[in-house]
Amino acid sequence: MHNHRVIPGFGLSLGFTITYLSLIILIPLAALFLNAGGLGPAEWWRILSTPRVLAAAKLTFGASAAAAAVSVGVGLLVTWVLVRYRFPGRRLLDAMVDLPFALPTAVAGITLTSLYAPNGWLGGYLAKWGIQGAYSPFGVFIALTFIGFPFVVRTVQPVMEDLGSELEEAAATLGAGRWTVFRRVILPALVPALVTGFTLAFARAIGEYGSVIFISGNLPMKTEILPLLIVSQLEQYKYRDAAVIAAGMLLVSFTLLFLINLLQRQLDWHKR
């Protein structure tokens, strides 16, 4: 019973992994939940039901959902073009999709702001149509879409590359047009990946801070997002309010991640 493991290093690697994980992630997060949990439901309700928190929650979740939905559309188009067609510059385009992952969020924030401000390159055009780009909820949506759509591309891309052509050929043989084939054959096969991409983009958008705070204008009740509200509570030394808002956000994000895991497990099971 002493050691039936053939590959060495199990105790050492697992011990180090668990110790480090606990010190850096688990204990600090537990401290947050203990801080917030010690307050009781009445206090939670008092903090979370203030108009300012509700307005920030509505903007954060609303803009994140809208951005994730648009990311699915944009991501599907971009993935389709990258996987199915060959054209000059395709590899460069493929590499560029990761730019929002690699570009520091503060840089994305100030750049998008300068582009979409009323006197910016794109904001000027939008203003002609009566749309305010930066310093509005629409600006928050733009920043979150920028951050979110690579998640959709990178989730859908491998699935689309693995789609065999047999079903499409069969459908074409049976007289289906391209649009019918896309709608009835290809799209259903991509739905799970699209849902995962949506959820990843949505989860990232909820917590996003750097790219949003410059373009949003940060008006309480109008363009203030939840992460910024946490920061402003901290700046007023309201640690408890900050902890409760943060714990609420984390509960939503963890639930989302849990649901993705369930979904993926179910899909793996189907594949088998």
């Binding site: 600090p28 997060l29 401290a31 947050l32 801080n35 969020t105 989860a203 990232r204 909820i206 917590g207 996003e208 801070y209 750097g210 939840l226 992460p227 910024l228 946490i230 920061v231 901290l234 640690y239 900050a242 902890a243 943060a246 956000m249 984390l250 994000s253 963890f254 989302l256 991640l257």
Partner: peptide, 14 residues
């Protein structure tokens, strides 16, 4: 990955 960067800072402040 599911934790907002702001919260990643907040835990250390707490």
């Amino acid at each position: 990955f599911a934790v907002s960067p702001v919260i990643a800072g907040l835990v250390w402040v707490l």
